[in-house]
Simulated assay, not measured.
Amino acid sequence: MARAEDPAAAPGVTRLGLGRPSPSFRLRSPSLNSVRLRRVFDLFDHNYDGEITADELCLALDRLGLGADPSEIASIAAGHIRPGRSGLDFRDFEGLHRALSDSHFGAAGERATEESDMEEAFRVFDEDGDGYISAAELQLVLAKLGLPEGKSMSRVREMICRVDQNCDGRVDFIEFKHMMQDISVRSSY
Rank of each mutant, 00 (worst) to 15 (best):
E175N: 01
S116K: 13
L142V: 15
G65S: 11
S184T: 11
G50N: 06
S75N: 06
H46G: 05
F125A: 04
D62G: 09
G87P: 00
E119A: 15
I174R: 04
K151H: 12
M159G: 14
I160G: 11
D62C: 07
A77S: 08
Y189F: 14
P7W: 02
S71A: 11
Q139Y: 14
A4W: 11
A108N: 08
A143M: 12
A8Y: 13
R162E: 15
G67I: 07
E158S: 07
M179E: 04
H46D: 09
R162V: 14
R82I: 03
L140F: 15
M118K: 15
A74G: 13
R20P: 10
R36Q: 07
A60M: 06
G67D: 10
D182P: 06
N47K: 06
S116M: 15
C167P: 00
D117A: 10
R39I: 07
I174E: 06
A107W: 03
R111E: 11
S75K: 06
D126G: 04
R26F: 13
D69F: 03
A54F: 02
K177T: 12
S86G: 07
R170G: 02
M1F: 12
D102P: 00
D164A: 01
R98F: 03
G129F: 14
S31P: 12
G17P: 03
P30T: 10
Q165R: 05
P23G: 08
A2G: 13
T113I: 05
C167A: 07
K177F: 12
K151V: 08
D49W: 05
A54T: 01
M118N: 07
D168R: 04
I183F: 07
D126N: 07
P7T: 02
D126V: 02
R38N: 11
A8Q: 14
L16Q: 01
N33R: 13
S134G: 09
R91H: 09
R82C: 04
T53S: 02
A9T: 12
A136G: 11
C58R: 00
A60Q: 00
A10P: 01
I133E: 01
G84K: 01
F25Q: 12
S71Q: 11
D45S: 06
L16A: 05
S22W: 09
A8D: 15
F105I: 06
R28S: 14
D69N: 10
C161S: 13
S29E: 12
A10F: 04
E56P: 02
L140P: 02
L16H: 01
D89G: 01
E158T: 03
R20I: 13
R157H: 13
P70N: 09
A54K: 00
G19W: 09
D89T: 06
F93P: 00
D164Y: 03
S71C: 08
G19L: 09
G50C: 07
L96Y: 02
E119W: 12
R15I: 06
Y48Q: 10
